[in-house]
């Protein structure tokens, strides 16, 4: 345990797709993505990654531990706006507290629609009894593109587009020489075009160009995580599951994630966004296979668990 951490990361939701509470998910947790990031040397500044169902309990924790000391302030970074990454937001209690100040950052999913509208739509009257515009907290929505943002306090954020069926951002926080990186929801780029010269659809020029686009995109994804102290990486499927019908769903086989972590000199790799069908027992078995020291190389690899903290 690092006695003088620069960044503390705590997982409040690690599951992909849909919350799946029950006796078979007790140890790893059934909540959808939400991660608390603290910067202890900056007044314990709070950053939250994603607002899946896990953010509900994080909100309760903030109400109990932080609000008595002063107003809650946080930057929330959304990877994207699919349900499992935003569904906890209406149940994040601090949004009902007038003193709360939130900055919600993310990519504009639709050309004509801002993040406020996308987020607000799930709090329209037909889905939820309190409308988005009626929230007591001061909430500011900020649109991100691929690039770099200075968040102040010496925290520099880099963003990178991931490969998912909606605009989705990976985040790389750099602070005092430490790097925390997220890469979910995503899957490796692959050639979608016909590569068999005997196929009547084959077009050599297209196949070649697609191949070079794939290579460049995958190299850019690699560079984005290079040298990170902790990468939280999509690992929803095993390679076999991925190949048996999950190609193009926007998630990564864990074997690829592990190899990418090692290939890019990542210190610790948190396998994340567990499939809802994955039981505790199954995750334990996969951990034996993939997370043993040296299984892939020097990178420390583990399956993220609800309630787990990592210090950087």
């Amino acid at each position: 345990m690092n006695p003088d951490p620069d960044i503390i990361v705590k997982f409040w939701g690690v599951r992909g797709s849909i919350p799946c509470p029950g006796p078979t998910t007790v140890r790893y947790g059934g909540n959808t993505p939400s991660i608390e990031v603290r910067f202890p040397k900056e007044g314990n500044r709070l950053v939250i990654l994603d607002a899946g169902s896990g953010i509900r309990e994080l909100g309760l924790n903030l109400m109990a531990t932080q609000l008595p000391k002063g107003p809650i302030q946080a930057d929330i970074f959304l990877s994207h706006t699919h349900w499992d990454h935003i569904q906890g937001f209406p149940f994040f209690t601090p949004i009902f507290v007038p003193s709360t100040t939130l900055k919600v950052w993310g990519a504009r999913t639709h050309d004509s629609e801002g993040l406020d509208q996308t987020m607000g739509d799930q709090m329209s009257y037909r889905y939820f009894p309190i409308r988005g515009v009626e929230l007591a907290a001061r909430i500011e929505y900020l649109h991100l593109q691929e690039g770099q943002v200075d968040l102040g306090d010496g925290i520099i954020l880099h963003t990178h587009y991931l490969n998912h069926p909606v605009l989705c951002l990976g985040y790389r926080f750099e602070y005092r020489g430490k790097v925390l990186c997220t890469s979910f929801d995503t899957e490796p780029y692959r050639n979608l075009f016909c590569t068999d010269p005997n196929d009547p659809d084959y077009d050599a020029a297209v196949a070649r160009e697609a191949e070079s686009a794939v290579r460049e995109q995958n190299e850019a994804a690699d560079r984005f995580m290079t040298g990170a102290d902790l990468v939280v990486y999509d690992a929803q499927y095993t390679q076999a599951e991925y190949e048996a019908g999950k190609l193009g769903w926007g998630h990564t086989p864990m074997e690829y994630a592990c190899r990418a972590g090692v290939r890019n000199q990542v210190k610790s790799l948190a396998l994340f966004h567990h499939d809802p069908l994955r039981t505790d027992q199954h995750l334990d078995e996969l951990a034996l296979k993939h997370c043993e020291p040296g299984a892939y190389g020097p990178t420390e690899i583990f399956f993220a668990k609800e309630g787990m903290s990592v210090v950087i």
């Binding site: 990519a107 504009r108 050309d111 649109h143 593109q145 691929e146 690039g147 587009y161 490969n163 998912h164 069926p165 605009l167 780029y189 050639n191 979608l192 075009f193 297209v206 160009e209 697609a210 686009a213 794939v214 995109q217 193009g248 926007g250």
Partner: peptide
Amino acid sequence: FYSLPEQVSSLTRAIIMLGI
């Protein structure tokens, strides 16, 4: 909103990047 560093003028590349 996509703001890529270089403009893409090939449809093939666009399909790889955006997905089918």
